[in-house]
């Protein structure tokens, strides 16, 4: 029963963050919000008894994916300055 409440709260925060990822004014805030969605999804996997998937999601979804997004917007910014 405890796990159910945790999953409910995490799911609500995930949905709020997903809306923030779509509607945030700054692109950097949107990318960070998408990373937070991935991080919370990894906690959800842990409550669903899937530690392997949780590790993968934490390392890839919220780590590498965010870094690649930031590299991409850095390149785009440089191109528009040229």
């Amino acid at each position: 029963m405890n796990m159910t409440w945790i999953a409910l709260i995490i799911g609500l925060i995930m949905l709020i963050m997903a809306f923030a990822a779509i509607y945030a004014k700054k692109l950097a805030v949107a990318i960070i919000a998408a990373g937070v969605v991935s991080l919370l999804a990894s906690i959800l996997y842990l409550t669903l008894a899937a530690p392997d998937v949780a590790m993968t999601e934490a390392a890839i979804g919220s780590g590498l994916s965010t870094i690649i997004f930031f590299y991409a917007i850095n390149k785009i910014r440089k191109q528009s300055h040229d």
């Binding site: 530690p51 392997d52 590790m55 993968t56 390392a59 890839i60 780590g63 590498l64 870094i67």
Partner: peptide
């Protein structure tokens, strides 16, 4: 234990 090639590879890339 939990983990494996994909996770380890992602951590190395991090």
């Amino acid at each position: 234990s939990p983990g494996g090639g994909f996770q380890g590879g992602a951590i190395i890339a991090s």
